[in-house]
Design a protein around this nucleic acid. Structure first.
Lengths: 247, 247
DNA sequence: CGTCACTTTGAACATCTTCAAAGCACGTGG
DNA sequence: CCACGTGCTTTGAAGATGTTCAAAGTGACG
């Protein structure tokens, strides 16, 4: 897979209506009235992204917002003199690039699409105009900031106290909870739309260590079919792995 | 030292004027006019805190804001089923507890004073009133949120890519930069107002590992006098330690 | 069907953690 | 004023955990 190939043909533009978007109620834009949203809708552009395409790049000046209609993207963070690190995944309904916009800074990292996605782009100026007159929208973005901070701090807590195996378990449980409505004891599947390298970065470890952790969990019957799609025989049993080991 | 003793006598109240506060220009309140600030000043209370005193505790409903007039406090984060972790230090001029206030949640962790401090408390209601009518103040808090997120993500990047020794170097360089105006090649001192345990948590490691890292840096002539106050013979040389080791 | 990237495996090694014990520093009470 | 207790820090040794490098598998896609 042409993971880092910059020559991927760009997807075709397509049309999509904010007012009837699947994410209408979850995205930041839920704070807007139909009229205001129509304004966003009129100025936005939509296109398909293939796996591996860059949404925005580190150091790039903010040129608006990106709203994920469908798909998953990896949000990386660049730190001077260090390789970038994958800090979080963004799913359908989430808005990308909002921090650079709110703070008037350049992008602090990269956003790269993990699976074929549809992403809308809203120009800088219309958003700024809306933010100026629309308090609830500001509050929504503020909440997003708070949620991201929360997640980042939770990540630090986990790295500080948990071994790799437990962190893997937490990631999988989290994805399982988000991907399906859980039905008690039933077996369920979860897809990992990222490479082992990405997943390793998200967990602050290396791909080899991650493989071994997954392997050991499979040996213990906590997982099956360790590829990019894995089955969970018992979510409760997997959950037991999310706390520090007893010893 | 009565680190965890809840029976520490509470410091005496004292008066302090926001308008002439040393942090007038740096704190969030810099966004306010003299008139608005006078309103804060009228309703706030000020008191001294001793080392070890709790400013706010995990799970506690938000009862306003805490503004550090002087001193340093440790901000911890609680994650279910895990010990709390020290996620950042807050210095004079910083406001504590703002996230719970903005988001209307309970406190996500504890804030504990590290050295004798003076901290003002502003009641919930006056702040909410100000936030409702004062855009720039909202933006200031938003920026604080963004800065904290930035720091948390930087922390993740460092844990992901750097060994303990480099992380220690980064922490010390950061403290050195914040504590004094740097004068080129000169030797300088930096105080560590926290225990080895706290510092270890901040770096996502254990106290023993931290001690050994400091020891090895002292052996290499990068530090001297490794107690709670340490001297830096050459900041540039220490800076070299903040990048991944060559091998 | 060959290529290329990703994944897995193995073995050696480095780093970090754990547990136990000794050394210090400071405040308390005799 | 000194002795003692308590908690923090340091040290040591052993072992677990995680990393690195190299090489062999695997799978997708041209």
């Amino acid at each position: 897979m042409a993971h880092d190939d910059p020559h991927i043909p760009r997807g075709q533009p397509l049309t999509l209506d904010c007012l009837t978007c699947r994410t209408r109620r979850t995205a930041e834009w839920a704070a807007l009235s139909d009229e205001d949203l129509a304004e966003v809708n009129a100025t936005k552009t939509t296109r398909r992204y293939q796996r591996g395409e860059i949404v925005y790049a580190h150091g790039q000046p903010c040129n608006g917002l990106y709203c994920i209609a469908s798909g998953t993207t990896a949000v990386r963070r660049a730190e001077p003199a260090l390789p970038t690190v994958l800090v979080r995944l963004a799913f359908a309904g989430e808005t990308l690039g909002y921090r650079a916009l709110l703070e008037g800074t350049v992008c602090a990292g990269d956003a790269k699409v993990l699976e074929p996605s549809v992403i809308c782009h809203v120009e800088l100026v219309p958003v700024q105009r809306l933010l100026r007159r629309h308090r609830p929208l500001v509050m929504r973005f503020q909440s997003h900031l708070a949620a991201d901070l929360d997640a980042a701090e939770a990540g630090l807590a986990q790295v500080a106290w948990l071994p790799v195996r437990s962190r893997v378990a937490r990631l999988i449980v989290g994805l399982a909870e988000r991907s399906t409505e859980i039905n008690g004891e039933e077996a369920l599947e979860v897809s990992l739309p990222m490479t082992r390298r990405d997943m390793a970065e998200l967990l602050c470890t290396r791909p080899e260590t991650l493989t071994r952790a997954l392997q050991s969990m499979e040996d213990d019957g906590l997982l099956r079919n360790a590829g990019h799609r894995l089955a969970i025989p018992s979510l409760p049993r997997l959950r037991e792995e999310t706390v520090p080991p007893p010893a």
